[in-house]
């Protein structure tokens, strides 16, 4: 079972910026335990571009698809046998990243 694990930051109350080494160590463990599929931190939402080509021609707009106080700061894809395992890892991930985590299953 695969889960998309989103790291959520808060513009008004951002998590600390010195989490890199701890996250690296956590990733090593995820890999060793067979949970790690993918991970990556994301550039600021200001660097996002939304593309809409449902009409006659593609429309490009600057910025994220939704402006909000909370935003996606990074993602993981994990392999886990069930939600209990994913939630236990996510509880650790939240502490390691100093940010909120959303766990969402893939179809």
């Amino acid at each position: 079972m695969r889960y998309l694990v989103s790291v959520i930051d808060d513009k008004d109350n951002p998590g600390s910026t010195d989490r890199g080494p701890a996250i690296n160590a956590f990733n090593e463990r995820l890999i060793a335990e067979g949970h790690w599929v993918f991970s990556g931190g994301l550039a600021d939402t200001g660097a996002a571009t939304v593309v809409d080509n449902r009409g006659e021609q593609a429309v490009f707009s600057d910025g994220p698809f939704v402006e909000s106080k909370e935003y996606l700061a990074g993602v993981w894809v994990w392999e886990a046998p069930d939600l209990d395992v994913a939630l236990r890892l996510a509880a650790e991930a939240s502490e390691v990243c100093d940010r909120k985590i959303e766990v969402r299953p893939f179809l």
């Binding site: 079972m1 889960y3 046998p81 069930d82 939600l83 209990d84 236990r88 766990v103 969402r104 299953p105 179809l107």
Partner: peptide, 14 residues
């Protein structure tokens, strides 16, 4: 079903 919440006893920690 979608998130695969298991049907079993939780671990001792939980």
């Amino acid at each position: 079903k979608a998130a695969r919440i298991p049907c079993r006893m939780p671990s001792a920690d939980d």
